[in-house]
Design a protein around this nucleic acid. Structure first.
Lengths: 182, 182, 182, 182
DNA sequence: TATGAATGAGGCTTCATTCAT
DNA sequence: AATGAATGAAGCCTCATTCAT
């Protein structure tokens, strides 16, 4: 991703990201740049240089998952069984959202992005997902009035439900799938 | 509700609650007691006396809605058309959750309560809801593996989805209903 | 000035003002509220409560001098010898400006005030000064094109000159007086 | 001015100076070396190499104006009409001070200089000005007790007054001229 | 009981300066 | 000679909570 960076700068950036990732994994989605600097053993300024806002840092943290989402969507697009594709995509999406404690969902549902790479990834993901959804609608697997936006919103909601009882993730996904079905 | 309270104390309590309710309605679920005291025209200490923690205040605020939920659940229990009953209950629940900006959902899904009256109301509501659900399951209106807890969690999630796009509330409710259907 | 204040609050307020006054006297006109809190031995919040902005504090600090200015202007207004009155007023004004390290001049020349009592005092002072100036103009002691605003601006400038060489204060005042003369 | 400098180093120096000059012209007299480096497209280190302190940079920036001042003073010295000479010099000095947002006045009135070329220019300027003043005194155009230092201090003050109301620059200059007159 | 002044930890962000590359 | 990443002190301000009145 970021290449034109001095070796030591890159190392620091990685350390910060690592710490931030750990925070997110622990559920602290509102990242405190000072705290992260301390844990990463770098000066505050360093964190601010790399990530001017908590938002930018969050996007960098979930960037990997967002990229994965794009890949998954593409993968799903290429599956023959459209219902299986939807189930696959939603289930995997949920996993990604969960391991980022909702950070990914937040980035996906945000209207403004801090980093344009986020915007690009999101729009690519949407393009693919909307296309898949179109096929699903045509196949009668998804009700016609459901938009891609709806699915993303419902997924964000689903994630919250699963946070409340992680053991029921599969049940909840199946509820959503059935709910969306035509 | 609260007895053995001097008239002025009761008046203060009400004023605080009113202000807090307005805050919650505006989406400020993490209540700032200082701010509330100021708006209510009472000292901070007074707020703390009546509501030792923000949590306690939140519970007091949504107490009315929680009571309404109990009533609604009871009402739903008495409806003949079980599917209509479920739809009625979920839709109305969502409305209550929305007008408390998720405060109600938070209280309902919380494991620990600050006030035991909350605990009582919640358990009463659960009893009634579980009973309704039992009937719904028997009637084949709800899939058998769905528990009352599941419904509550999914409702909390639904509320988040609706927050993301309030205009789609009806669609999202219908998705949930269908998803729960046997 | 401020009366409806609890005894301890008033004491703290005074302590803060005292420290701030000392700062100003030492030339630190841009008051640092944290620093002042520390020196006054009170919490930062206390300072912020009494003086929401550095500006408000500065105005409070020079309030006394501003009041004195109003008195002096009134006194000057009642003197028979109009030239002596102008000399008296300018010289005394300069003294007040100097002992506030220009803080008074800054407040006087500011367009926006933090405290409306400042605004009142300033407008009272201007009213009196403009009246005196009118008389001075009529008496041919001040050139006709000079406005009250001009005098205030020139006094602010004069203060800077005097800061550069305090020993020459009298000379500089006499230069100004002569410069203003018709 | 600066010799024995590699071509690229000289170019960098110039770029920095240009940016700093623009800052000063806009009123930012306390120069932020980071900011300037960014705008000049050079590293901070480069700025520090050429100008170890903000002060040094400021002196470099107003060096041109200081040189102009020397020229103007010389020019004024050669004018026949001594009153016209004083008026010419003061008015032009004020213009220079204004377009450096007081930076020039600050350098002129400073006791310590960062760069000895500043010291030289200042002393040359003083020599010429004092000489002119001597003539002015002799001609009865300037009051006998006024020193060159006084004039410089008063000019610094005048600049402040003009900053407060730039439209009155001419009036204020005339006040000073008259004030200095014998 | 009520008040609201006081506290001060805790979060934020900037920026002058250094120094490894 | 140039770079610019890194530093971290230093300033800012808020707000949850306590406690003297």
């Amino acid at each position: 991703m970021v290449t034109n960076l001095r070796a030591d700068a890159a190392r620091n950036r990685e350390r910060v990201l690592e710490v931030a990732r750990a925070e997110v994994a622990e559920g602290n989605v509102s990242l405190q740049l000072n705290e992260i600097a301390r844990k990463a053993g770098v000066g505050v300024g360093t964190v601010y240089r790399h990530f001017p806002t908590p938002r930018a840092l969050l996007e960098a943290v979930v960037g990997k998952e967002l990229a994965t989402m794009v890949q998954l969507t593409e993968q799903a697009s290429q599956m023959q069984d459209i219902r299986a594709a939807m189930e696959f995509l939603l289930r995997r999406t949920l996993d990604l959202q969960l391991c980022t404690s909702g950070g990914l969902a937040e980035v996906i549902c945000a209207i403004e992005d801090a980093d344009e790479r986020t915007t690009h990834a999101k729009s690519e993901m949407r393009r693919l997902a909307d296309h898949l959804l179109e096929r699903a609608r045509a196949a009668g697997v998804i009700r016609p009035e459901i938009t891609g936006e709806d699915v993303r919103n419902l997924m964000a909601g689903l994630e919250r439900a699963v946070e409340l009882d992680p053991d029921r993730a599969d049940v909840y996904v199946s509820v959503l799938i059935r709910g969306l079905s035509g």
